[in-house]
Each structure stands twice: as structure tokens, then as C-alpha cells.
């Protein structure tokens, strides 16, 4: 499995070799606010599967679990791109909207349903968690 992707303006591009470790949809307040949407959708890979070219800005915050969460966006256009957590330092989350081809994507799990906005809907066939 080989994937490519880029931000809205093209200043950041990336390639991914191999299948994702996990695919998730997250409705937590932090994901909602950082994307401006109802939820984030991410495919997680080992860092050595993902090669990134271009300049990103990283914003660090503390998750309610106490873990450090790093979110990266394009310095030029602000597109959401990657996330990392101190809970799993070998993994990187890739924003699915940044991928060029996503036919293969389907979340394994939906998390933080307890923080979901009333106007955002979920697929009832997907495993659902109130929090993580």
C-alpha cells in the first residue's frame, strides 16, 4: 500500500508506505476546534512509514489524559496535517482529508462521542466510545 498527500497549497507533501495501524474519528473538543469541523478523521502509521517534505508548524497541548499532544499544520495555508501523542511516540496520525486517495479509509473506531456536537452524525456500524 502506497499513499501520497499534500496540504491545500502544496507547500507540504508526504508519502506513506504500508497499511495504517489504526483509523479513527474523534469528536473531542480539541479536534473539533483545531479543524473547525465536527470531528477529526485520522489514519495512524508508524513514523518510519511516513516521509514528510515541507515546513509545518507544531502546536503542543495537554490532552485530558495528561499526555502531550502535538498537532502540525502547514505554515503557509494552515491545513491540518499530522498529530502525535506522548502516549505512543512511535506513531503519527495523518489527517485523512490531506490524502490524495481515500477509498480504503473507514474508521475502526469513533472516540469522544460524549463531546460530539448535536449537528454531527456518526455511522452506527462503527464501534463507538464515550471517550477514548
Amino acid at each position: 500500500m502506497h499513499n501520497t498527500g499534500h496540504c491545500h497549497c502544496g507547500a507540504v507533501s508526504f508519502t506513506i508506505e504500508g497499511a495504517p495501524l489504526r483509523m479513527a474519528q474523534c469528536h473531542c473538543n480539541a479536534c473539533r476546534r483545531s479543524t473547525g469541523t465536527g470531528h477529526s478523521v485520522q489514519a495512524f502509521f508508524k513514523k518510519d512509514q511516513v516521509e514528510i517534505k515541507g515546513e509545518t508548524i507544531t502546536h503542543e497541548s495537554t490532552a485530558d489524559s495528561g499526555n502531550t499532544r502535538k498537532r502540525q499544520f502547514c505554515a503557509q495555508c494552515g491545513s491540518r496535517l499530522f498529530s502525535e501523542s506522548s502516549a505512543n511516540p512511535v506513531a503519527i496520525g495523518v489527517a485523512v482529508g490531506a490524502l490524495d486517495e481515500t477509498e480504503w479509509f473507514k474508521p475502526d473506531v469513533i472516540v469522544y462521542n460524549s463531546e460530539r456536537s448535536a449537528w454531527d452524525v456518526v455511522d452506527p456500524s462503527i464501534e463507538l466510545h464515550d471517550m477514548m
Binding site: H6, T35, G36, V41, S79, R80, G97, A98
Partner: peptide, 13 residues
Amino acid sequence: LDCQKSTGTGHAP
């Protein structure tokens, strides 16, 4: 596609 790219998601509300 522009909203997908900039948000990193499937759609923008």
C-alpha cells in the same frame, strides 16, 4: 476539495 484539504476532514460545517 478545498474544504477537505484545509480541514483535513471530509467536510466543513
